[in-house]
Nucleic acid binder design. Structure first.
Length: 824
RNA sequence: GCGGGCGUGGCGGAAUGGCAGACGCGCCAGACUUAGGAUCUGGUGGGGUUUCCCCGUGGAGGUUCAAGUCCUCUCGCCCGCACCA
């Protein structure tokens, strides 16, 4: 028997054995209850980082725990394998993106296997594989069929560094989410998915997601940005044109003193007075050139220009000057805003700058606002003033009343607007799934017939970024025949946003090699939804919102029977070193490769799970890793030293007393604690600490003289210990399980259950307080009544002294906890 | 500015309103040892007049027999959103 813990030998041995036995394969169907445990699949960058290690260690505990509890656990892994880094690496090192990606996948798969994560590798998928992206394209066609994929020309976010357009979600504070380059605006014709059609559902169903962190739900809610208000039409003076605005404050309609259009608004050209055309055109050009960040940062100066024409307030006939201004966005609402300086801070600033009138129409209670004296807008509640028939009405009532009046007169209506915009999915890059569309001069836009999929990505392409898709230059790809008329036609050359690939991968795991369809509907019905999804909070909006959108669409076209993909979501915290996120530039990166080589997988996993609860940020500590390593050695030595002694021991007796009973109690209490900690809140850190306490207790028990030890009690404790530790440290527990005489894998054993009779204490320590301060303790039978507790406490020598000469006002007794004597 | 989270020993972190600091790291002492950066045992919030007492969970109030935990205000740090009409 090995006296020392050699993780290298053990981990290599079991890695091979599990592989050969295909231990972690999960059947498509069985009679056991299902559990779908999913971790966000990585981009194959080449090597795992600590964030991955943490993510997958957490997921593996859940998967192994649920497996031991008797579930069929679907626990797959794959690769989010399309994307820019492959192209950038290819350009830099002259390797083809496909080769670069494949090599990285191989390297990372091997690292994951080294970590001992219980994936069913038979279900591995890679989004860049034609067998996968064929179905990505197929899904695009389903969107197209339903009118949810459409092409339109619009101002878009352009990243000059990535040389491609970006979705709204991929622009963070005016910069490219990937490379941080400031995003420009360009007018381009691009493919979009109509996610806005699902805006209301995506918002409402957030309420169903009780298993998601509040934080993520709020972030999505804000992103969708529903606001209720009214659309109001203002006729233009001396013209047949009308301007429609959206406002959440129809109650302030009588306070409108100017009108603003977005500079790009189509009406601007028509409405501009002839003598101002040149100035307006200059202003529009300037606004166009402004980056998104300057345009929307809030701090930027509001700039506007009068375009020389007026419109009329439809309710009171006021003549209102029309402006254009940089702070009005074409994309939101109707692209026009009515200016109410008295009751909107932005309008107030704008009106002050351009000396526009300020008209108070809401008066707060007990106060009379004077527009000349105002230094900021009043946005609170109040009563209408200067508002004709609505005078004296509370403004919250007026919102509805004004809207109704507008509706009656046919000049406005109730309206709901969303901040969420359609999802721009075209990318002018090579390494992605081609959009399966053909353009024919006779037939127009024709979808590629489903049976012709996949539209394969050509291999020999010069993929340097030029601003247009590299596929444009690839004649074999572009030139094709029209599926409709058979004539000459051209293929769409843009590829899809990689977030499309990752919006449905959790479904492909269910039928990873199905060549007839993207997934088997019946099997999807069985496995979906994902019971537990685990990943970083950085995907709170992008990936999680897109996946929810896909799921809702697929539900509507009857391809799945759930309308939310992820029942429970765990957002793990970051891994920090010296208080900061690990990064090359800070030089505080700890490489999983090195740690795995020095300490092995079990130690690495154990440390990461022990150092902090999963949702919280984790501070990396080399000494902490040492501690985890030391603990596993301690377990090893303990088990190795007693394995022979209890090999043939029977089940322990329920009648044992003294140290044996105490040992059994700790064993069963630990089972209870660990089970609850994992189940309740994924509190792996406290679960592990409980296991450590069991080991400490076992050392005490082992060091009794041998004649005083009960081999049956020892055996029970050691075996439960190994079973409880198995999900955290799969290799060492498997080895020790074998060493203690077992022939089937520990990872195929049922999760231990505790015996309530063994958990109970016969005697407990009660705290005795006087006026809330602990003054003494007493040991009493566990089933003692309140009355006896109180009597015994009052009889204690110390308590008597403290109470002497004072008046006992009352005595609080909390069963099994304490007695508090309140005196005066 | 709005929204969310977090403030507990030297450090990571524990505590259904009921003994603050479990467990681990670090540190101190002892044992074993040719040796120890191995292992085992014990100790380890601060202070004091040291069988005992006082103070202590960012700060100030409050509720309660009892508050790290609940309430009000306040300070600091982190994250997300930010001209959305």
């Amino acid at each position: 028997m090995e006296e020392r813990y050699h993780f290298n030998r053990i981990e290599e041995k079991w890695r091979k054995a599990w592989d050969v036995a295909d231990l972690y394969a999960v059947p498509d169907k069985s009679n056991r209850p299902k559990y779908y445990c999913l971790e966000m699949f990585p981009y194959p960058s080449g090597k795992l980082h600590m964030g991955h290690v943490r993510n997958y260690a957490i997921g593996d505990v859940v998967a192994r725990f649920k497996t031991m509890q008797g579930y069929d656990v679907l626990h797959p892994m794959g690769w989010d394998a399309f994307g820019l880094p492959a192209e950038n690496a290819a350009i830099k090192h002259g390797i083809h993106p496909a080769k670069w990606t494949q090599e990285n996948i191989d390297a990372m798969r091997s690292q994951l296997k080294q970590m001992g994560i219980s994936y069913d590798w038979n279900r591995e998928v890679a989004t860049c594989h034609p067998g996968y992206y064929r179905w990505t394209q197929w899904l695009f066609l389903q969107f197209y069929k339903q009118g949810l994929a459409y092409k339109r020309k619009a101002p878009v976010n352009w990243c000059p560094s990535c040389a491609t357009v970006l979705a709204n979600e991929q622009v963070v504070q005016g910069a490219c989410e990937r490379c941080k380059t400031t995003v420009e605006r360009r007018e381009l014709e691009q493919w979009n998915l109509r996610i806005t059609k699902y805006a209301d559902k995506l918002l409402q169903d957030l309420d169903k997601l009780s298993g998601w962190p509040e934080k993520v739900r709020i972030m999505q809610k804000n992103w969708i940005g529903r606001s209720e208000g009214a659309e109001i039409t203002f006729p233009v003076v001396d013209s047949d044109e009308k301007i429609t605005v959206f406002t959440t404050r129809p109650d302030t309609l009588f306070g409108v003193t100017y009108m603003v259009l977005a500079p790009e608004h189509p009406l601007v050209k028509k409405l501009t007075a002839p003598d101002l055309r040149e100035a307006v055109e200059q202003f529009v050009q300037k606004a166009r050139r402004m980056s998104e960040i300057d345009r929307t940062s809030g701090e930027g100066e509001k700039e506007g220009l009068f375009i020389g024409t007026y419109c009329t307030n439809p309710l009171n006939g006021d003549k209102i000057p029309i402006y254009i201004a940089n702070y009005v966005l074409l994309e939101y609402g109707t692209g026009c805003v009515m200016g109410v300086p008295a009751h909107d801070q932005r309008d107030f600033e704008f009106a002050t700058k351009y000396r526009l009138p300020i008209k108070v129409v809401i008066q707060p209670e007990g106060e009379k606002l004077d527009s000349a004296a105002m230094t900021e807008a009043y946005t609170g509640p109040g009563v209408l003033d200067n508002s004709g028939p609505f005078n004296g009405m509370p403004n919250d009532e007026a919102i509805g009343a004004v809207t109704r009046t507008l509706e009656e007169q046919g000049i406005g209506r109730h309206r709901v607007t969303f901040r969420l915009r359609d999802w721009l999915i075209s990318r002018q890059r090579y390494w992605g799934a081609p959009i399966p569309i053909i353009y024919c001069d006779r037939c127009g836009t024709v979808p590629v017939p489903e049976e012709d999929l996949p539209v394969t990505l050509p291999f020999d392409v010069d993929f340097k970024p030029t601003g247009q898709s590299p596929l444009v230059e690839c004649k074999e790809f572009v030139q094709t025949t029209c599926p409709s008329c058979g004539g000459e036609a051209r293929r769409e050359t843009d590829t899809m946003d990689t977030f499309i690939d990752s919006s449905w991968y959790y479904l492909r795991y269910i039928s990873p090699r199905n060549e007839e369809k993207p997934w088997d509907v019946e099997l999807a019905g069985q496995w979906m939804p994902v019971d537990q999804y685990i990943g970083g909070v950085e995907h709170a909006i992008l990936h999680l919102l897109y996946s929810r959108f896909f799921t809702k669409f697929l539900y509507d076209i009857n391809l799945i029977n759930v309308d939310e993909p992820f029942q429970n979501l765990l957002t793990q915290g970051m891994v920090l070193k010296d208080g900061a996120k690990m990064s090359k530039s800070k030089g505080n990166v700890v490489s999983p490769e090195d740690i795995l080589a020095e300490y092995g997988a079990d130690t690495t996993r154990l440390f990461i799970l022990f150092a902090a609860p999963p949702e919280r940020d984790l501070e990396w500590s080399d000494q902490g890793v040492e501690g985890a390593y030391r603990f596993l050695q301690r377990v090893w030595r303990l088990v190795a030293s007693v394995a022979d002694e209890f090999k043939d021991a029977p089940e322990p007796s329920d009648k044992v007393v003294g140290a044996h009973r105490a040992m059994r109690r700790v064993t069963h209490q630990t089972i209870q604690k660990v089970t609850e900690d994992i189940e309740k809140r994924f509190q792996f850190n406290t679960a592990i600490s409980a296991i450590m306490e069991l080991v400490n207790a076992l050392y005490q028990y082992r060091d009794l003289p041998q004649v005083d030890r009960d081999p049956a009690v020892l055996r029970e404790a050691v075996e439960k210990l190994l079973l409880l530790l198995a999900p955290f440290a799969p290799f060492i527990t498997e080895e020790l399980w074998e060493m203690t005489g077992h022939t089937t894998s520990i990872h195929r054993q049922p999760w231990p259950e505790y015996d309530p009779a063994q958990v109970v204490e016969e005697e407990i320590t009660i705290v005795v307080q006087v006026n809330g301060k602990v003054r003494d303790r007493m040991v009493v039978p566990a089933d003692i009544g309140r009355k006896q507790m109180e009597e015994k406490a009052l009889g204690l020598e110390k308590i008597k002294q403290l109470v002497e000469g004072k008046k006992v006002i009352k005595v609080i007794t909390v069963p099994k906890k304490l007695v508090n004597v309140v005196v005066k």
